[in-house]
């Protein structure tokens, strides 16, 4: 049971959603956007958040598409991970979504919710960071479409009252060579020790990571090292781990050292597969 009351809004348009969020803000009331709701409900129940209102954006038509328009695959923020999987329009994103939580939760968790959640992994961000994706945001100041990578620094940087409407993935990425690897400590369904998404553009590897640090990231320095094919795979993998943007993430379950060890081996195996033409 959620042990307090909130007001539930279900807007039918982008404007309605932003207006209601803004009007609550100026009155000093707290509001959260609500999509799949799995995190909002859990955090309300556990007392981590106590919003005065939730704004359910699942009925806004602009947040719903899942189709290719010629140059881009457009995915509405309220599309569930399962809808994205079943569509199989972007195979790399399909794999990433298919390893987040379990199947029943994938029928509920949305792309927007995963990208904006407070849980540190946000694994659906990885394919977007490496595919020149763009994101359309809407808020009290109107609509803007920006590069996903520029607005996602560990977590998405939204202005007051802004929410994700859609992501747009250029069609080159839909048919590019790719790899997705998620390593967990024990069970297949678990948060990642290390999760990575890779894509090849013009023969170069692009790669993004989750689990290894306290936020998902893509690093130009790491990509440079991994693409230096004059060096052995093992050496490149070791150098990449030395270039992490912060010390490897430690929590009660797994130490940073262990995560770094797993990452090094995973990268070496990935590079060897690439060298051997298996990817």
């Amino acid at each position: 049971m959620i042990p307090f009351d909130f007001i539930y809004y279900r807007p039918d348009s982008l404007n309605e959603a932003a207006e209601v969020c803004q009007s609550l803000y100026v009155k000093g009331k707290s509001a959260v956007y609500y999509s799949g709701g799995s995190e909002v409900i859990t955090m309300c129940r556990a007392g981590n958040i106590r919003p005065d209102a939730v704004i359910d954006i699942k009925h806004i038509p602009e947040c719903m598409p899942l189709s290719v328009d010629g140059q881009h695959l457009n995915i509405g923020s309220v599309c569930t991970l399962n809808q994205i999987k079943e569509s199989n329009l972007f195979p790399l994103l399909r794999l990433a979504c298919g390893r987040i939580a379990d199947h029943t939760n994938q029928c509920r968790i949305t792309l927007g919710g995963n990208l904006c959640g407070s849980i540190i992994y946000r694994e659906a961000s990885l394919p977007l960071l490496i595919s020149d994706a763009q994101v359309t945001l809407f808020g009290p100041e109107g609509k803007r479409t920006v590069s996903f990578q520029s607005v996602f620094q560990g977590r998405i940087q939204l202005k007051q009252g802004e929410f994700i409407v859609q992501v747009h993935i250029p069609t080159w990425a839909l048919s590019a060579r790719y790899a997705h690897i998620k390593k967990t400590a024990h069970e297949k369904i678990d948060y990642p020790l290390v999760s990575l998404a890779a894509i090849w553009k013009d023969g170069n590897l692009r790669i993004a990571f989750s689990g290894i640090c306290s936020y998902p990231f893509r690093s130009g320095e790491i990509e440079s090292v991994l693409n230096d094919r004059t060096k052995p795979c093992k050496e490149r993998a070791g150098q990449a781990v030395d270039l992490l943007p912060e010390p490897a993430y430690s929590d009660a379950k797994d130490s940073g050292e262990y995560r770094a060890f797993v990452l090094k081996n995973t990268l070496q195996a990935l590079l060897e597969e690439w060298e051997n033409g298996k990817i």
């Binding site: 709701g37 409900i41 029943t104 939760n105 509920r108």
Partner: peptide
């Protein structure tokens, strides 16, 4: 399928 503990 849906987990009814995570739905209003």
């Amino acid at each position: 399928p849906a987990k009814s503990c995570l739905m209003l």
